[in-house]
Amino acid sequence: MAVENELLLEVNDLKMYFPIQKGLMKRTTGYVKAVDGVSLSIKRGETLGLVGESGCGKTTTGRCIVRVYRPTGGEIIFHIDDEEVNLNRLERQELKAFRRNMQMIFQDPFSSLNPRMTVLELVGEPLLAHGIARGQELEDRVAEMVNAVGLRVEHLPRYPHSFSGGQRQRIGIARALVQRPKLVVCDEPVSALDVSVQSQVVNLLQDLQSELDLTYLFVAHDMSVVRQVSNRIAVMYVGKLVEVAESEELLRNPKHPYSETLLSAVPRPYPHHAMQRLSLEGEPADPANAPPGCVFHPRCRYMEEICQTDVPALTELSPGHHVACHFADQLQLQGIDSASPSGS
């Protein structure tokens, strides 16, 4: 993974509010603030991991970036071939043409593929839709892509139902990558797969990244998988980023209490070492009715008065390590400890 110093994607103050509508007249009675002021950047060739619990807005962030949703506010800027493309300023047709640069890999390989299409049609469809290739050239490019993801040419005339979960996910990957996108949003790409297949797909995604010069936004909830693929990790909680850092730095030296608890909650395969787990009371806040101050304060073990009133800003604590916590520089938090038990 050669991370270049060149920026590929910049997201500034992204907001996605979904209206809550009630009654016959569909009056808007409030908003679900799924994404509330997220700023991030991704370099070319880099993988940014985006972690958080369900409902935290990580998937919505990914979908806004590839413009499945039109965000309520904020800017999404791509830097491609020395050109700056602001998605907000694109006309319909321009946006359609630009979509080949940004693709998505989905969680559920069972529902993300049309059961009535063969592998050839599924993987070839994006090429046809964008007018990139047709006829023999299309078949050649599909065959090449299918080989690259570890399937065989004999699979091309088959339908999705005849494949296992892992193979279907490979089809989904081929479909996303066949147009040679610059940015790929991987939305929980392995969490629906079997343990032994998960590691195969993680390895495949890493191989393809270096072969095809890809940049990933890797959205997932499993810290150990995210760490495996990511250069940097961003932790999200109820619509906001609470911490961003280099992945090893974040794991070893977390500065936000929520990151600390997330790390502590990962079940470890060491039966001897009864974990001193930091248990987290309660459940994530409702993004339609977020608490004032720091959104994490009702569950935070280090909560002080200021946390209930003032929203902490995401500030740079040390180079590259951003935290949104009033006490980030004072707290002594517990990260992973690589000197600790190994199974053998």
Partner: peptide
């Protein structure tokens, strides 16, 4: 056991998949 990433150990360049 080998194929899962172990969060408390050094990160491996690749996972050892079955």
């Amino acid at each position: 056991l080998n194929s899962i990433p172990h969060i408390d150990e050094e990160k491996l360049p690749r996972l050892r998949a079955i």
